[in-house]
Computed example of a mutant assay.
Amino acid sequence: MLSEDVLRLIAALNGIDTDVAAIIVSLGQKAAASHGHAISEFPGLTAALDGKAAQGHTHALGALADVDGEAVEQAEPGAVLSRLTSGGWGPVNLTAADIKSGQLDAARMPAHLSPAAINNLSASISSARDEVRERSIALAIILT
Results as ranks from 00 to 15, higher is better:
Leu143Ile: 14
Gly51Cys: 06
Ala111Leu: 07
Asp17Thr: 08
Leu143Pro: 00
Gly15Met: 03
Glu134Asp: 14
Ser124Trp: 09
Ala63Trp: 02
Thr95Leu: 09
Asp19Asn: 11
Gln103Val: 11
Glu4Gln: 13
Glu76Asn: 08
Gly102Arg: 05
Leu121Glu: 04
Val132Tyr: 14
Ile141Gly: 01
Met1Val: 01
Gly88Thr: 00
Ile16Cys: 10
Ile142Phe: 10
Ile137Cys: 01
His59Leu: 07
Ser126Phe: 09
Leu139Gln: 05
Gly36Phe: 10
Gly102Pro: 04
Gly87Pro: 11
Gly56Asp: 12
Pro43Gln: 04
Ala128Asn: 03
His35Lys: 05
Gly28Asp: 06
Ala65His: 08
Ile10Trp: 03
Ile141Leu: 09
Leu45Lys: 06
Leu27Ile: 09
Leu64Asn: 03
Gly102Ser: 06
Ala65Trp: 03
Met1Ile: 00
Ala79Glu: 04
Ala106Trp: 14
Val80His: 02
Gly44Gln: 12
Ser124His: 11
Gln29Asn: 13
Leu27Lys: 08
Pro91Tyr: 00
Asp68Trp: 02
Glu4Ser: 11
Ala71Ser: 08
Asp19Tyr: 02
Asn120Gln: 14
Lys100Thr: 00
Ala32Leu: 11
Ala71Trp: 07
Ala63Gly: 15
Leu49Lys: 02
Gly78Gln: 01
Ala22Val: 00
Pro77His: 14
Asp50Thr: 07
Arg8Phe: 06
Ser86Phe: 01
His35Ala: 12
Gly69Tyr: 02
Leu121Lys: 10
Val25Gln: 12
Ile23Met: 12
Glu134Leu: 14
Arg83Trp: 06
Ser127Ala: 14
Thr95Ser: 15
Met1Leu: 04
Ile16Tyr: 14
Asn93Ile: 15
Ala79Lys: 00
Ala12Glu: 12
Thr18Gly: 10
Thr85Trp: 10
Leu9Thr: 05
Asn120Ser: 15
Glu134Gly: 14
Gln74Cys: 02
Gly36Arg: 08
Ala123Lys: 12
Val67Thr: 07
Leu49Gln: 07
Gly69Ala: 07
Leu143Glu: 08
Gly15Cys: 01
Ala22Phe: 06
Val25Ala: 15
His35Asn: 10
Arg8Leu: 10
Ser101Trp: 05
Val20Gln: 01
Val72Cys: 05
His37Asn: 05
Gly62Pro: 03
Leu84Ile: 00
